[in-house]
Each structure stands twice: as C-alpha cells, then as structure tokens.
C-alpha cells in the first residue's frame, strides 16, 4: 500500500537531523490521541527535542527529516500533526518510544492502516531505525501493555 498524498514539506527533507532542540518540546503538550508534526527545520530531533512523552517517528534514518509525534494511538498515519496535514503513512524510517506511563508504555506498530498486517513491538524508552523490510511500510500504531509471546 502506497497511499501518498501531496508531500507538503518536501523542502525540509535535506535539513540535517541534529537541529535546534528546544522549540518542538512545547508542541508535546498534546492530549492523548492528538499528534504533532514537525519538520527538521523546526527542530524535532534525536537529542532531546522530541523527549516529550510521545511516540515519535521520522522520515529518515537516525531520526532525521520530517517527524510525527503522538501521545495516543493513531490508526491512520496519513494524517498526522496539527491540522492533520502531514502524511507519514509508509514513510517512517526511524522512531523513538518516549511514552511516559506506568502502563500502556510499549508501542506496537503495524504495516497497514487500522492496525492490520505485519507488526513489531518496541518497549517503553526504546528507539531504532526501521530495517529495510520495514522501511516506508508502517501505517498505524497503538500503545499496549505488552505484546505477549
């Protein structure tokens, strides 16, 4: 599934990943269920800007490029950010689970919209690059107590 919508912020893709930390943290005051979009030029980055209790994904590896952050679940990554004007569907290449919670701290990401298809689980506090077979394929996520086995 490749449901790309118009790439609105394409110009920011080339911005290096370690941008100014402080600015985006303020956007993290989201209530559960909301999402936050930021592009690298405004500073969502690995060094602490996104350290806000949300689950964050980035378009590029090593937490670079456009990013989206969620405090809640999102069944459809086609619309993330304030106003839902950024499409992260099938585009994420790295992520960081910053969830601040005693329960529902782990995150399970899914290949398809509405929690379908293949999935993988990340513990609270975990981060990583998406491996090649997962790159640009993730479409939804939910917070879980544990993924079981």
């Amino acid at each position: 599934m490749r449901k790309f919508r118009t790439l609105l912020l394409a110009g920011a893709l080339a911005v290096p990943l370690l941008a100014v930390p402080a600015t985006v943290t303020a956007a993290g005051a989201a209530t559960a269920g909301t999402s936050t979009a930021a592009d690298a030029s405004t500073g969502a980055d690995a060094s602490g800007a996104a350290a806000d209790g949300n689950y964050w994904v980035w378009e590029d590896t090593s937490r670079g490029g456009h990013s989206c952050g969620w405090s809640g679940n999102d069944s459809d990554w086609r619309t993330c950010g304030a106003g839902g004007n950024f499409n992260m569907n099938d585009r994420a290449s790295s992520w960081w689970n910053n969830g601040y919670a005693g329960s529902f701290g782990d995150v399970r990401v899914y290949e398809n919209i509405n929690y379908g298809g293949a999935s993988t689980c990340a513990p609270n506090g975990g981060a990583g690059n998406v491996p090649w077979e997962w790159n640009d394929r993730i479409s939804s996520h939910k917070w879980v107590n544990n993924c079981g086995f």
């Binding site: 999935s119 993988t120 689980c121 513990p123 506090g125 975990g126 981060a127 990583g128 690059n129 997962w134």
Partner: peptide
C-alpha cells in the same frame, strides 16, 4: 528483535 528491528534504549 526477530522482526528484524534493532532496538536501543
């Protein structure tokens, strides 16, 4: 992870 994802913390 067995899903192929390398996870750091």
């Amino acid at each position: 992870a067995p899903t192929g994802m390398t996870i750091t913390a």
